[in-house]
């Protein structure tokens, strides 16, 4: 499903070269869920962005569903993203100009894979039924993140990439959102790569890896 092989990434900063990823090898299979942990600034988000094709590695390669991202042009990478990937961000990234239902089906429509039944189902599962005409700013934080998750899953992606999806939520909303996320991931049988710094959030996932000094460590003995 997702394979990272010897991925290196270095950023240029005013203080000099800053190596962030230093030879990452990672494989994620269909239906598998993986928690990626590490301290702030350890490169978790960078790794996620590389996996989403939002950024390109300096060395190594990344493939999704057998397609090497580095072999794809930008438009193809974008197509891959809208058709096969779901992205959930800590800051939700909802489109403020669109209402709930249009936000929910935006990516599915962009990918020309809208499934009205599935959308309606998702809306109900997200607890947003009856709020189709609301605009994002009229929702609570938890509702907004659920909508963002729904938007990512509306396209029935094979891989869901989530970056601290509960980072902006209080504990109770976080638990609800996380539970919903895992349920829906299980329902769609997509793979999940979730960046988090919270062991509590990481706990329900199949696997856990820790990013430390640019390398992955398996924390389990």
């Amino acid at each position: 499903m997702l394979v990272l092989h010897q991925v290196h990434k270095t950023f240029s900063t005013p203080q000099g070269e800053l190596p962030v990823l230093n030879g990452i090898d990672l494989t994620l299979d269909q239906g598998e869920s993986l928690a990626l942990m590490g301290e702030s600034g350890s490169g978790k988000s960078t790794l996620l962005h590389l996996a989403a094709g939002l950024d390109v590695p300096d060395q190594g390669h990344i493939s999704i569903e057998g397609q090497r991202l580095s072999s794809l042009e930008e438009p193809a990478r974008a197509r891959l993203r809208r058709q096969h990937l779901g992205l959930v961000f800590q800051q939700f990234h909802l489109v403020p100009s669109l209402n709930v239902i249009d936000n929910l089906r935006l990516q599915a429509r962009l990918a020309q894979r809208e499934d009205a039944e599935w959308t309606a189902h998702l809306l109900a599962r997200l607890g947003l039924a009856g709020r189709e005409e609301y605009f994002p700013e009229q929702l609570s934080g938890g509702q907004q993140q659920r909508l963002a998750i729904g938007r990512a899953l509306a396209v029935r992606p094979s891989l869901l990439l989530a970056d601290e999806p509960t980072g902006n939520l209080d504990e109770q909303s976080a638990d609800t959102v996380l539970a919903l996320l895992l349920e829906l991931v299980a329902e769609t049988r997509c793979a999940l790569l979730m960046v988090t710094h919270s062991a509590r959030v990481a706990a329900p996932l199949n696997r856990l890896v820790r990013l430390h000094l640019g390398r992955l460590e398996d924390p389990r003995p």
Binding site: E74, A78, R82, Q83, L106
Partner: peptide, 13 residues
């Protein structure tokens, strides 16, 4: 705004 759309898979062009 544009970056959000890009993340959702709209090509840059």
């Amino acid at each position: 705004q544009l970056a959000s759309l890009w993340a959702l898979g709209v090509p840059r062009k």
